[in-house]
Amino acid sequence: MIADLFPHAQPGAGLIGGVMIGLAAAIMLLGLGRIAGVSGLAARATGIAGSGAPHGIAIAFILGLPLGACIVASVTDWKPATYSAPLMLVAAGLIVGFGTRLGSGCTSGHGVCGLSRLSWRSVVATGLFMASGFATVAVMRIAGAL
């Protein structure tokens, strides 16, 4: 049914990749007692965050991300994605970096770990960043940027 309604969707790949992300976060939680929140761990790995996970744990997790991506790309028929222009990416990156630190999390920490924990803070944060994401892309569409 989904294939008929949205022929471009990939629900199977989405589900499999999603389960892998959830298992990865479960390893972090049950193995190390921590949230697999990428923005927090990235800030910690680079020394930007003054407190949080031990540096070694943060650095190992963050280095794992490109390693895992690289492994998948080398064993599947992965094709390079299309990215926005550098200036747009710089603006987006600045806002994402500042916003995720101010809001204490991103899609992984609030979205995956927080929602599954039924954390009220994460439910609100996820609702807000989804809503502002929808609104931003709607404005981009109106402005003819898509």
């Binding site: 994402v96 101010l102 960043f129 809503a131 929808f134 609104a135 931003t136």
Partner: peptide
């Protein structure tokens, strides 16, 4: 929390990328 999440959503929409 609220302002941070809203800002993050704007950046996520603009670039199509989140930190991970």
């Amino acid at each position: 929390l609220a302002v941070g999440a809203i800002l993050f959503g704007i950046g996520w929409g603009l670039g199509g990328l989140c930190p991970g």
